Simulated assay, not measured.
Amino acid sequence: MSLVKVMTDLEALEHCIEKGVEEANSLIITYNRRGRFDNMKSVASLQKLLEMLYEEVDLLTNPKNGKYLTGKNRRHVVNKIRDKAIPKEDRRKDNKTGQPPTEDQLLMSEFIHGKLIFMVESGKHMEHSLNGWVSQFDLLDIESLPIQKLEERIEEAHKTTDFYLIKPKEIVRIFKDALYNMNISLIEKSFNILNKCEKIKYAKNYNIVDLKGQRLIVDKYYYDKIVLARMNLLKDLGSSINEYNFALRSNKKSARIRSIVDSVSEMLASNFECKFIYQSYAVISVEAQNVCIEKESFDESFWNDFIRRTDRRQRLYDSKPIKEQTWFWRKLYAFNTLSLIEYMGFEVGDLLVHYELENKQRVNELSLSFEKWLEENNSLNKLEVFKNTT
């Protein structure tokens, strides 16, 4: 059927949603953050969605110069509606260990590809730990975050929260941990994507640093043996690998944390004659291409992905029975995290408003759940016990 239709960005998004194109639901969130698209990546994604519904899809051009109209003047032109919508062309590779990469993850992997090409051309060293690659790619520097201001933002965000125990320092530490994990995950995911697309080849090495400071590459079996011994020791010390890794990155350590780090170091030295262990990624080859992903586009995809992870993490916790939801930072994790993202100058859209409107209900549920937990566990001191659960 031939029918020419001209639509704005918003009209095209709403049209796709009306026609049952599920991918448009996530794209409209990007649009609503600023009431517009601010890069052509999103526009191109919308064009692909329209191609599911129409045989002919294009953008309206300026008759004076033949260039595409931009901003508020941009119009999507479609013609010849399909009898049946076709699936969106998916250039994502199936991942046997998880979901296929999102469009944002693909864009970030292309940004990483461009960085690798530049490093090869510049004669840079091509083997680093994951933290080392984070530095090489100039990703978000977690240690440069304005901690005190972020803590003040949390205090401000909860000035009307009807609850007696808010820990800004803990909330900001968790925010830092989440961003650190995001950086690490981004490197691993990007390398896997690029490797599967045959744009790079890399080797994963398992390393120990012996007591003389020499690096030795060991097999995975021996490396895992050390990891297991470290994990068991941390468990005996009432700690965890997350707390241990955070301690290694932190400049300020409590007496307890220093004791844990020292105990692990002593165990590694006596049992395995090494100071520490780490994994590294050695990039063996990089396919040379003309890759040009702007840092601004990368940053937008980074925060889009982080916001999705934040929402997903909150929903996962919310899926637990209400009576088990007794952790303050987890109960309000999305609200706290989105508040900090917004404070740092990045758009979070209506999602923050959504969680802000739920705050009173969440706090009430938290208080009731905690009271129930206290009754069941016959606790003597409400405040002290609650501190041990956060």
Rank of each mutant, 00 (worst) to 15 (best):
D9P: 14
L248S: 05
L216K: 15
L357V: 02
N183T: 03
L194A: 04
N192W: 02
W373G: 03
F298T: 00
T389I: 06
D104H: 08
E371C: 08
F306N: 02
L332D: 00
T97N: 02
K235C: 05
C292I: 10
F137L: 07
R173I: 04
N245P: 02
Y281V: 09
M1R: 14
I293N: 02
E110Q: 11
S250R: 06
K220Q: 11
L60G: 06
A178D: 07
E358I: 04
K67V: 02
I187A: 00
A288N: 15
N388P: 00
E155C: 07
E365Y: 01
E89W: 08
F276V: 08
D58G: 14
N131C: 03
K176W: 11
E384H: 09
E156P: 03
V78K: 00
P168S: 04
E371K: 09
I174E: 07
K159A: 06
N364F: 12
T61H: 10
E342V: 01
A282S: 14
G123M: 09
D262N: 09
T326I: 13
K196P: 03
L338G: 03
N65G: 04
S254M: 06
N25G: 06
K124E: 14
S26A: 15
K19M: 10
I29S: 10
S301F: 03
E55P: 14
S265A: 13
V209S: 09
S185D: 00
V363E: 00
Y317W: 11
Q47G: 13
K201L: 10
L380Y: 13
R215H: 11
A255K: 08
A229K: 05
K167V: 03
L69G: 10
I257F: 01
S319R: 14
Q105F: 02
S239I: 05
H113N: 11
R258M: 06
Q47E: 15
E356K: 15
D83S: 12
H158S: 13
L106V: 09
T337Y: 12
E375W: 12
K189H: 02
R36A: 12
K19T: 08
I217Q: 14
L248G: 04
I341Q: 01
S135G: 08
T161P: 04
G345I: 09
E89A: 09
F272Y: 15
E170N: 09
K72G: 03
L268E: 05
S129K: 06
V363Q: 01
K64F: 10
Y68T: 09
M182Y: 14
S319C: 08
V385A: 05
S379C: 11
L268C: 03
H354T: 07
I112Q: 01
V286N: 13
E266M: 11
E376G: 07
L46S: 00
S185P: 00
P100G: 02
D311M: 08
R74W: 13
M267K: 07
L340N: 05
G132L: 02
V218H: 01
S250H: 03
N207P: 10
R215P: 13
T389N: 08
N205E: 11
